[in-house]
Design a protein around this nucleic acid. Structure first.
Lengths: 162, 162
DNA sequence: GTCCCTATACTCGGATAGCAAGTGTCCGAGTATAGGCGG
DNA sequence: CCGCCTATACTCGGACACTTGCTATCCGAGTATAGGGAC
């Protein structure tokens, strides 16, 4: 099992967009430059987040992406599902219905026991991710990150927006 | 994100092996026949479970696999990690250390905030899976499954072990 | 000086190759069994 | 009749192709801007 690398990028971008000046936008190239990742590929994930309604896209010069909602109204789970898809990690293929112990379809009223357990774990995972918002992440970064790094980030913003 | 299909097979096999007569073993071919899956590929996953110490393999005629521990002492998580690997689903590539806001390595004392959140969710997922044992699954199946299917399963056993 | 128009340059968006990992399969090494042989 | 030996057949174990999906990249459609010209 493995989570797409784009999820990490999407979350970092969301955090950066959350501290943007109001009504400002940041294009793909800038976001890629800040995070040191290939712009062409990052674009793919930003488009996915835009399609999911997490980001608003602004075309033309001075355009780019910005958060579509308040940072407190976007959960980590939202980003994960936008980039990585929302299909559950475990998919029951109903193998209990095959082989010598198979019976008529109407006999299978309750879901497969294994399916139930996996779904419960999946729900716990999603619940944890839904608890944290992008605003929470911003607060965590502000508290945990090195002051030097924060100042360098602020300086980078200054150079762009003047 | 996606869990290997072999995990489902491994869990179903573990449940079947849990209701085996003591000191009996079931070969790959029989397990594949019962679940209606290709034997050659199932073998791969059974080997992984054997390597992980969950199954004991018995070579030669009348050989096969059997549980290496009591069914109550094997968790669903054990099987998942044996088949699918135990590396966390999310892997932080430390992109915060790249780009214009990068600072000296010693400045990064605490883990990346995003990494923390993802790890917390991963732990919740693993915790849920660790709570349930193969014995629990057996109990769930015994209670939920159709009586007809259970009888057909018992009959299948009868034909093999006489 | 002000307004309008046009050309420009920059943005997103989707369609297109490359690669790693999961999926599926095969054959060889090793062993308990069953049958035959000798005592 | 009993014990031993040998050949057999069945098992696991790891090495070898194939397919799906993630990774990476490019070029085209659309738009706000900036500059120039007319009034």
């Amino acid at each position: 099992m493995r989570i797409s690398e784009g999820v990490e990028w999407g979350l970092h971008c969301a955090v950066l967009l959350a501290v943007l000046p109001p009504d400002a936008a940041l294009p793909t190239g800038r976001l890629a430059e800040y995070h040191g990742v290939p712009a062409a590929y990052l674009a793919k994930h930003l488009q996915a987040m835009s399609r999911a309604g997490l980001l608003d896209s602004v075309p033309g010069p001075r355009g780019g992406y910005r958060l579509a909602r308040l940072a407190g109204e976007i959960s980590v789970l939202d980003v994960v599902e936008a980039v990585d898809g929302s299909t559950p990690a475990f998919r029951c293929t109903e193998i209990r219905r095959r082989g010598p112990s198979a019976v008529a379809a109407r006999e299978y009223r309750v879901p497969c026991s294994i399916h139930q357990v996996m779904d419960r774990a999946d729900a716990a995972w999603r619940f944890e991710l839904a608890k944290t918002s992008i605003a929470d992440l911003v607060a965590m970064v502000a508290q945990n990150a090195s002051p030097v790094a924060l100042r360098k980030g602020a300086q980078w913003f200054q150079e762009i927006f003047g």
